[in-house]
Structures are given as C-alpha cells and as structure tokens.
C-alpha cells in the first residue's frame, strides 16, 4: 500500500483545464520537489494536497483514505509569506498548536500543562535555531527567521505530510542555502514526507529524493486552456545527468514563452 496515491486526478476551472490525469504514488519519507512553468498547476496541486481545493475528478488517498476537503492536522504548510501569526511571539507561535489541542474552550494553557507544552515548543524552536529570538515578534525577525519559525510551528504537530510552497523564494541566496541545510536536517531527523514547490530548478536537484516537473504535454495555440499540465518528469534526485537538467530547463522556458505570448495576445 503506497503512503500517498493519486488516481486520475484532474482539476479544471470552467473551461480551463489546469491538471490532467495525474497518476502517481509516493512512499513515506520521500522528499519531492516540484518545478514547472508558471501557470502549470503546481500550486493547484499543492492546494489539493492541502485541502483548500478538491480535485474535479479522481482522488488523492493518504494511506487509503481520501484527503479531507479542508485543511487539517495531517498536513502542515509553509507558505512563501504570512504563515506566522504577527500578534504572537516566536514562542507563542509554536505553542499555539499545543494550546488549541489541549484546551478546546479558551485555546490557552495554564500551569503544569503549559509548562510541559513550553518545553516541547522550546526544543522545537532550538531545532530551527531560533532560541535567541524566542520572545520576539515576527516583525522583528528577518525573512529567513520568519520561515524558520513557520517550519517550527508546523513541525510541532508532527504532520504526516509537510507542504512547502516556494518557502525560500523571497530569501537571499546565502540565507536560502542555510535554509536548505535546515530542511534536510529536519527531514532526516523527523522522518518527514515533504512536497516542496520551487521555481529554482537547481534547488529541485539539490534537495530531496524525487523531482517532479509539471508541464503541458499537449499545447494547442488556438485553445491554450484546452489541455492541462501533467507530471512530465519523475526523476530520482542524484542519479540523473546534466543533460536531463538542461532538457527540462529548455522545455520549461519554451512553455513559459508560449504562455507569455498567449498572455500578451489576450491582453492586447
């Protein structure tokens, strides 16, 4: 039994077909990076895994159970921005999940329970390297530190799938490298199953165990919305050659140009 199975998953909005017949399976502990041209349904796919979108056809199974159609504790998410609570300190942000789990009326913990939850939260904060900032508010943190916080916040729930939506897209290259190290470390340490969207194809080749490329298989220039994207490459990371990398890069830029032309036509 696969951990996650996708069966004929399609997604369309009206006439616009975004994704077509995705069939794939993912085992527990895999780290999948997803790249693709803009508008090729990467984010839509992630939203279906997250539960904020449901497939138009087909289904996604997590250990043989259909995913619930709203976000829940099975899935953790780190967005590019805005995924920490600005009105809570670092510690309160991480503590939040523990508090709502144990206090259904107030969503707050007191006394011994709070102390225990604090200890767990503090060790999580330490794992992402934010111990020195535990009492700071997010606006006092740099972009990289905010993303570390967002990761800590999710990991304390021990999600069965961790979804990362271009988590490092807004960060400087140097900081991005540190974040890669951190994610790889946490992935091994907590045996996570990760899906990560990136538009940096090098990131895709460096991180994780599998690289998925989302692209349109067919393209009708007269009806650009008639065909959706699918997974065109499914590669084990570390075992492929530079030639493949170039090929993907070329294909994607072709799709990107095609879409840009369409965009310009429809705008003009």
């Amino acid at each position: 039994m696969p951990y996650i199975a996708m069966k004929n998953v399609s997604k369309e909005y009206g006439d616009q077909v975004v994704l077509e017949r995705l069939n794939n399976r993912v085992e527990q502990g895999e780290f999948i990076t997803i790249v693709g041209a803009s508008g090729c349904g990467k984010t839509t796919f992630l939203k279906m895994l997250l539960g904020t979108e449901v497939p138009s056809r087909g289904q996604i199974l997590l250990e043989n159970q259909t995913l619930s159609p709203e976000p829940d504790e099975n899935r953790g998410i780190v967005f590019q921005r805005y995924s920490v609570f600005p009105h809570m300190t670092v510690l309160q942000n991480v503590l939040f999940a523990k508090e709502v789990a144990q206090s259904s009326l107030l969503g707050r913990l007191f006394g011994a329970k709070r102390k225990q939850a604090m200890e767990q939260s503090l060790s999580m904060i330490e794992a992402v390297g934010l111990s020195h900032a535990q009492n700071k508010y997010p606006h006092e943190l740099s972009g990289g530190m905010q993303q570390r916080l967002a990761i800590a916040q999710s990991l304390i729930k021990k999600p069965r799938i961790l979804l990362l939506d271009e988590p490092f897209g807004a960060l400087d290259p140097g900081i991005r490298k540190d974040m890669h190290k951190l994610v790889l470390k946490l992935w091994r340490q907590y045996k996570l199953t990760i899906f990560m969207i990136t538009h940096d194809i090098k990131e895709g080749f460096y991180l994780g165990t599998r690289l998925w490329v989302f692209d349109k298989i067919r393209n009708d220039p007269h009806a650009p919305n008639a065909y959706g994207a699918a997974i065109t490459y499914d590669l084990p990371v570390g075992a492929c050659e530079a030639k493949v990398f170039q090929e993907i890069d070329q294909n994607l830029s072709k799709t990107n140009t095609a879409q840009k032309n369409i965009g310009e036509q429809s705008n003009g």
């Binding site: 904020t52 829940d72 921005r81 805005y82 939040f96 508090e99 709502v100 969503g107």
Partner: peptide, 27 residues
Amino acid sequence: VPAEQIIKAQTLGANSWHIILRVIVPQ
C-alpha cells in the same frame, strides 16, 4: 487577515472558535 494564517491555524488543529478567539480577535 491573510488567508495563509487561517489555513495555517487549521493545519495546526484549530477549530473555528479557536481561530476567531486566538487568531482573528487579537489582530
């Protein structure tokens, strides 16, 4: 209040009441 925060709170196990009480009202 950014949708990202509301979604995040749901993935952290918060119900509607928790989200109103701890995420929306304080903000």
